[in-house]
C-alpha cells in the first residue's frame, strides 16, 4: 500500500554541518496492516512521514501510495491519506466541531456526509462532552483525539500518525490504541511512528526499526525477537555480590549446556546477564547453583524484547541512542523545514 524507495534527505548545510536525515531508506507497508516505525528521536521517522504526506520533497527516491506516485500526483495521494502530525495543529479560537467542519470542507465533503461523519467520530473518540468548547481549553489528550478525528474525517485508506501518544494520559492513549486497532481490522492501512518500544510491540503487525535514516531491521515483532533466539535471564546470587563471587558464578554458568553468553553487570551489583537457549535451561541452572551451595537472591527470565533487537543491530540501547542523537540535531533548521 505504501512504498518508499531509496529515500534520501539532507537538512542544513549553510551555517551548520548538514544532517543526513534519511539515507537510502526503503520501506514497504502491506495494505490493511498496522505498521510501526520504531527508532530513537532523530532517527528520521518524522522526515520519512512528512515526505510520504507530500509536505516535504526528498532529495532522491520514490514514494507511492496505492500505486499512485506521490511526487507526480501529490493531490491524489493527499486524498488517500489521513495525517496526524506530531505537533497537534488546532485553532485555539475555533471549537472542536468547527475545526472538523473546516476539515470536511477542505476535503470537499457534502453537508450531509459532513454532519454524519462528525457525529460518528465524536462518538468513536468520546469527544461529546467538550466538542463545542473552544480548542484553546483542551488538554493534550483532548487535542490529540480531535486531531485524530480530523485525520479520519474523510475516511482515508491510509492513516499516518507521527508519535500519536507522546505525553498522553492513560485514558487517551487507550482510546487511541483501540481506535487504531479497529481501523486496521476494518481494512485501513495504519502507519505510525514511535520511540516507545512497548507501543510498537503491542500495536504493530509489522515494524521497521530506523536508525541514522536507514531501516536496520524489518519484520513482525515476533519474528524479529524470535530471530535473536534464546531467553534473557538476569541472576543475582545475593543483593550485593562482589567481583570475585561474580566471576566464580560466571565460570560455573558458562560450563552449563544451553547457556550462550554470560555478562557480569557491575553497575547492578555484579548481577549476571545470560542468554539461554530455552526455558528448560533455567531449571538446570538452579540445580547447578544449589549443588555449588550458592544462594539465589533473584532470578528473572524474559523473552527478547524489541530493545534487544535494536541492541543487536546497533550495539546500543534505544535510550542511549536518543541521548547521543540529541546533541547532533539542528532543531532550528528542522523547525524551519517543518514550517511550510
Amino acid at each position: 500500500m505504501i512504498e518508499l524507495e531509496h529515500l534520501s534527505k539532507r537538512f542544513g548545510g549553510r551555517k551548520v554541518a548538514p544532517v543526513q536525515a534519511l539515507d537510502d531508506l526503503s520501506l514497504s507497508v502491506p495494505a490493511g496492516s498496522l505498521y510501526g516505525l520504531l527508532g530513537p528521536n532523530g532517527a528520521g521517522k518524522t522526515t520519512a512521514l512528512r515526505i510520504l504526506c507530500t509536505l516535504l520533497a526528498p532529495d532522491a527516491g520514490q514514494v507511492r501510495v496505492a500505486g499512485v506516485d506521490a511526487l507526480a500526483e501529490p493531490r491524489a495521494v493527499r486524498r488517500l491519506l489521513g495525517y496526524v502530525a506530531q505537533e497537534v495543529a488546532i485553532d485555539k479560537i475555533l471549537t472542536g466541531r468547527e475545526l472538523l467542519h473546516l476539515q470536511a470542507a477542505l476535503h470537499h465533503m457534502g453537508a450531509v456526509d459532513r454532519l454524519e461523519r462528525t457525529a460518528e467520530l465524536i462518538e468513536l473518540l468520546a469527544m461529546g462532552d467538550w466538542i463545542d468548547r473552544r480548542c484553546g481549553s483542551y488538554s493534550g489528550g483532548m487535542r490529540r483525539r480531535l486531531d485524530l478525528a480530523a485525520g479520519l474525517l474523510h475516511r482515508p485508506r491510509v492513516l499516518v500518525l507521527d508519535e500519536p501518544t507522546v505525553g498522553l494520559d492513560i485514558e487517551s492513549r487507550a482510546t487511541i490504541w483501540q481506535v487504531l486497532r479497529q481501523l486496521r481490522d476494518q481494512g485501513t492501512t495504519v502507519l505510525l511512528s514511535s520511540h516507545y518500544l512497548e507501543e510498537v510491540d503491542a500495536l504493530a503487525d509489522r515494524l521497521a526499526i530506523i536508525d541514522g535514516g536507514r531501516v536496520i531491521a524489518e519484520g513482525t515483532p515476533a519474528a524479529l525477537k524470535g530471530a535473536l533466539g534464546g531467553d534473557r535471564v538476569t541472576l543475582r546470587v545475593r543483593e550485593f555480590s562482589d567481583e570475585q563471587e561474580a566471576s566464580r558464578v560466571r565460570d560455573l554458568l558458562q560450563a552449563c549446556r544451553g547457556v550462550r553468553q554470560v555478562v557480569v553487570n557491575r553497575a547492578q551489583g555484579y548481577s549476571l546477564n545470560l542468554v539461554v537457549e530455552d526455558s528448560g535451561v533455567v531449571e538446570t541452572l538452579r540445580q547447578q547453583l544449589a549443588e555449588a551451595q550458592l544462594p539465589v537472591f533473584a532470578l528473572a527470565q524474559s523473552r527478547p524484547s524489541l530493545d534487544d533487537v535494536y541492541l543487536q543491530a546497533t550495539g546500543r540501547t534505544l535510550s542511549d541512542a536518543e541521548l547521543s542523537v540529541a546533541g547532533r540535531r539542528d532543531l532550528k533548521e528542522e523547525r524551519k523545514q517543518s514550517m511550510r
Partner: peptide
C-alpha cells in the same frame, strides 16, 4: 505556519 496549522491545509487535497 508557526503553529503547524498550515500543514493541515497543505496535506488536505485542496483543489
Amino acid at each position: 505556519r508557526e503553529f503547524g496549522f498550515l500543514n493541515r491545509l497543505l496535506v488536505a487535497p485542496l483543489r
